[in-house]
Design a binder for these strands. Structure first.
Length: 488
DNA sequence: ATGCTCAACGACTCGGCAGC
DNA sequence: GCTGCCGAGTCGTTGAGCAT
């Protein structure tokens, strides 16, 4: 029974998920669409890192030609080639592909490339299993390294890949892990030996850690949507403590568990249908808002590889905003969507400064995001510092109303994201029927424009983006309206 | 993946008190 | 005056939840 490197890693998290992956792959849940861009950027990073060791030969991946690829790798090594990308090895029924295999002064070295910005245990296990297989198959490794993104790098002019990447030696830890690799491998092979013996395993912290499992919906099918696991701000460890004691449903929770104020409302409203409204709290919040009111929302995109000057890895670049301005009975809508392919920041700022000028209060949902983007714009464009600071000073966070528990309805089910709050407070508004229905999709759509050449398709994507972003600020207008009404 | 915020949590300090 | 214990208060860290 052969295992791939990624299956081994998966098995370390949960043996049952490995078994399901092998024998019941149809039970895998759909990957989160908003993470798609990150997933794809991994490839981009891998190819860029190859330039650190130029002039290598690539072994192209083909699942039907694994033995052939392994042979090809051996032949290339014998032929005197010093750098191989995706070098393929098979040993003890485990298949690994080494991102970069390079012959250094002391001998062969393996390099594992990650688009992450810090080291983590999973990557070290990843390196350790590769080390095991490569050594086992007969190529003595002198060293093993982890290559990852240095997020302190700021791009000026051409991309400086030496500064963009951190190369971190991991040889001692790889050697130290060899013993446990052998044991784990034995254990995992045992698990997948038999296709009829699905391992019994209860849900646990490992369903989230280090990654959320692809089979979570399958293993969690009996957990109701309103349960100890949906309680607001309940720590994961604590959730499972209750779960193990048999406390799962809201009814059980009510009689057994001490709750925070918001959790209390959550349980109470689920059991009785009651909507909690704290009029004094809401009134006090509303008094901090002065007309004309701006309702503002940004869309941004990012990538591990900085594309523009004065950009760091993963730094989010704003490319779009929507701004509703309410003055007495007049609601005016402003919007901005950058042309794709060039640095949108300067244009973005200038338009925003113009449009937001009138507003005395600027409402946002989750202030930390918009404030951070604005502060980063000051960093990259200090000539606008004063005007941007003026906007920052006007920001008020609508999310705070809900975080403080001033308004709670069962429909929120322990979440105060605007996608949950809007339908709970306002009828007839929902994100469901939009082409683009969350920020991640917006980012993907904008990034995807580089692959579209057909003008009418580009216009269509642009319109979808504008429609989505507009709904986000309109949602804030409506939520604000509902809050005002709720105090009378 | 980043970064911000806030609540929760654990570690720690400190005062009060009993017991010797 | 020393010790140990308890609860209350403080402080720094952790982690959940939000945005993209």
């Amino acid at each position: 029974m052969r295992l791939s490197k990624s299956q081994f890693i998966r098995g370390l998290q949960c043996p049952k998920s490995l078994w399901l992956y092998k024998y019941k792959p149809e039970l895998r849940q759909e990957p989160d669409e908003s993470l798609q861009a990150i997933f794809e950027s991994g490839k981009e990073v891998g190819e860029l890192a190859q330039k650190l060791f130029p002039n290598g030969v690539t072994i192209s991946y083909d699942p039907t030609k694994l033995y052939e690829n392994a042979k090809k790798t051996t032949a290339l090594i014998k032929s005197g080639i010093e750098t191989i990308y995706e070098a393929t090895f098979l040993y003890d029924d485990v298949l690994v592909m080494v991102d970069i295999l390079h012959k250094g002064v002391n001998g062969w070295e393996l390099y594992e490339v990650k688009s992450s910005t810090k080291e983590n245990e999973v990557y070290l296990n990843d390196i350790a299993i590769q080390y095991f297989v490569v050594n086992g198959s007969g190529l003595q490794l002198a060293n093993a390294f982890l290559i990852y993104i240095n997020n302190q790098y700021v791009r000026h002019g051409d991309l400086d890949i030496q500064s963009l990447f951190t190369i971190s030696p991991q040889t001692p830890i790889a050697i130290q892990k060899q013993e446990s690799i052998v044991i784990e491998l034995q254990r995992l092979k045992e698990v997948v030996k038999n296709d009829s013996s699905e391992p019994g395993r209860d849900i646990g912290l490992y369903c989230y850690n280090p990654y959320e499992c692809d089979f979570k919906t399958y293993c969690w099918k009996d957990i109701p949507s309103e349960s100890v696991f949906s309680l607001y701000f309940m720590g994961k460890q604590k959730m499972f403590d209750f779960y193990k004691r048999g406390i799962i449903s809201f009814k059980q929770i009510k009689s057994e568990v001490e709750l925070t104020a918001i959790q209390e409302m959550q349980v109470e409203s689920a059991l009785s249908g009651k909507v909690f409204i704290n009029k004094e709290g809401i009134s006090e919040f509303l008094s901090s808002i002065t007309e004309p009111i701006g309702y503002l929302d940004f869309e941004t995109f990012y990538s591990p590889i900085p594309h523009f000057n004065n950009q760091k890895p993963y730094q989010q670049i704003p490319f779009q905003y929507s701004l509703h301005v309410q003055k007495e009975d007049d609601l005016h809508h402003y919007e901005f969507l950058a042309q794709h392919g060039k640095d949108p920041r300067k244009e973005f700022i200038e338009n925003l400064i113009n449009n937001a000028n009138d507003a005395k209060t600027v409402l946002v949902y989750n202030i930390s995001f918009e404030r951070r983007i604005l502060n980063e714009l000051i960093q990259s464009h200090p000539e606008y510092e004063q005007e941007i600071n003026l906007i920052i000073g006007k920001l008020v966070d609508l999310l705070v109303v809900f975080k403080r528990g001033y308004y709670y309805s069962r429909k929120m089910n322990g979440s105060f994201s605007i996608k949950k709050v809007l339908p709970a407070l306002v009828h007839g508004f929902a994100y469901d029927d939009l082409e683009i229905s969350d920020g991640g999709m917006a980012m993907n759509a904008y990034k995807g424009l580089e692959n579209i050449s057909n003008i009418s398709d580009i216009v269509k994507v642009g319109n979808n983006l504008l429609e989505y972003c507009k709904l986000d600020t309109l949602a804030m207008v409506k939520i604000h309206e509902t809050l005002k009404q709720s105090t009378t």
